[in-house]
Design a protein around this nucleic acid. Structure first.
Lengths: 193, 193, 193, 193
DNA sequence: CATGAATGAGTCTTCATTCAT
DNA sequence: CATGAATGAAGACTCATTCAT
């Protein structure tokens, strides 16, 4: 399996670093190769083309993330706690890897429609996890029984995404991790007094 | 003033149309010029460069939008109603102009960091409107008195943005306008039962 | 019409020169552009792509050649004289433009199957001229009445082609024009005593 | 001797097959290696470089052909019969091995000047055979005593070559073997009535 | 002898922008 | 004001060849 070989991960990590530092459009294959310590051609032994590096990058990081989140959530006893864990892990994950945050929040969005469709397909797993939490909350009776799950999930994602993007665009001047509880509160109870 | 001349608007409208129909990366200056019925060189009599077309496009559309929203909101008596009006206008505006929706939600995001920074600057007015509503809510006592206004605004924006983007990516299969009340509800009261 | 503009011919002539001097594989677009005294991008205002330069080059030269040959042949009274004129013009044309000879006999054959198919299509006119001469000879009774026209034409072409190619490969050491009469004799009477 | 080892012939035959099926430019060394059932690197134990595979291929096939032709011709009593035998063997050889016909008539010509020079050197033996037949014909008095042997040989080669190439380009729709006698006739007596 | 992972040089084409008319 | 022909910089990808195992 190609994705278990050391050079595969080496190239992915180099891509995150190069894209974060230079921006999407200045992240030439040759620059990524150099950062990974391999020849340009070696990239193409592991990836179909440049776009495939980006998709694989997102797949790899997102796969690790959803796996971890599933494990943690499995240990929680109710939907409210699960949502809290999800918010915490989402924000911690990106707070702990600012390069990855820049890449996912800013640079990867400069890709064309086709690539974005592939990215959305990768996000499907994450979507399912959130939907499951929300459905569980409804069943438990702690969430509105007429909750529109799709809409609520879009609120969760949209809120987290906007918050991280703002943090990145503000050059990470404040501590993202401090926002876990207030965000969780907002999502649960809205803005009403 | 350049932006009052007919060709200025002609080019902006051509840009929206060309980008929506061809995608950001296939929206060459020559294609926009042709759609606007002017020569390539003429573009540069009205805009500094290609990026300036995009910024101006966003500025123009966003300017009209915030003006309208300010008028409508001025006629509302409290923050809850104002937020409802804002949600309604946000969703209606994009539901009524699918080309514009595609451009703002998908295509314009494929631009580089610099352009996105300029876009964020243009959004400042809109941000202020939301912040004012939230602050008013706090003062009225209908919103949490310890509400983090920035966070709450990010929730409002993030939620609206995610909802419209999902609607666009799903080829606008459902009616965006039907979501006004449930979204408003979610923002006000969160997901709790 | 693009092919009437001066730069069109300028680029074609530069291509013949560059290909003859450097060989097909060392004839980069940038080299042709430089020789033509235009920018690289200008090439693409007149030709769809690099292959199109080659096809157009052959079309242009071959078109001029068949036009000229048709005029000359029209002034001849019988098929034997017409064939003589054709052999003469074929050999003179290439003897007078050694660069063109190198390009058509050697370099243009290094192209892929698709390009060769296009080249064959361009040759169709020339084929028709030869076939007409042979058919006329049969009708006049000066050529075998059971002559297989296709086969005879392949002999004519094959012989001329092989002779010119040998001359080019031998660095044009002898005078190609001296071969007109003996070749004509061979084609008419074969090798028999 | 390397060329007596099984893998040598294995690689040559794989090359003919791969080139005939994929075309010259799509016949990568790795593809030939795979078809031959050896590793890429193994190729270089038997051939100096890729070009050497092609030259050796031609050498091998041409060597077998000229050997066979010399044997057959030795059994013929006069030059006319010898020429007939040569035409017959030339057309039969390629009619019986369509892959080889595609490779020699079309694909191998896409090679550069240097390779073509080497191919011409290999053809020298074949040339000598034809020249000997023609000279014999002159001596016997059955061919013109002032025949230009070089020119006549170019007619023989050019005609055979053009005929086979046309047959290959026409997807071998007709029977090449049927042309032996008419071609022989044409070469001997020309097109005159 | 045989392998096959790794190398890295080399080029066509696009398109935002200019400026002579 | 308006035109549109001309410019030229910039980068992903292939594949023949090597060499450590």
């Amino acid at each position: 399996m190609k994705r278990d070989k050391p050079k595969y991960k080496q190239i992915i990590d180099a891509a995150v670093k190069v894209i974060a530092e230079n921006g999407f459009h200045q992240a030439q294959v040759s620059k990524i190769a150099k950062a990974a310590g391999v020849a340009d051609g070696t990239i193409y032994l592991y990836f179909k083309n440049k776009e495939d590096i980006l998709v694989s990058l997102f797949e790899e990081k997102m796969g690790q993330f959803t796996e971890k989140i599933e494990q943690v959530i499995a240990g929680k006893s109710n939907s409210i706690e699960k949502l809290l864990a999800l918010v915490e892990m989402h924000l911690y994950q990106l707070a702990d890897d600012p390069n990855l945050a820049v890449v996912t929040q800013i640079e990867l969005r400069q890709s064309n429609k086709e690539l974005r469709t592939q990215i959305n397909a990768i996000l499907k797993n994450y979507i399912n996890i959130v939907d499951a939490i929300l459905q569980e909350g409804i069943n438990e009776g702690v969430m509105k029984k007429d909750l529109d799950v799709r809409l609520a999930r879009q609120m969760v994602f949209g809120t987290l995404d906007e918050i991280v993007t703002n943090w990145v665009m503000n050059e990470q001047k404040y501590n993202l991790k401090d926002l876990v509880r207030p965000v969780h509160q907002l999502l649960i109870n809205g803005i009403s007094a």
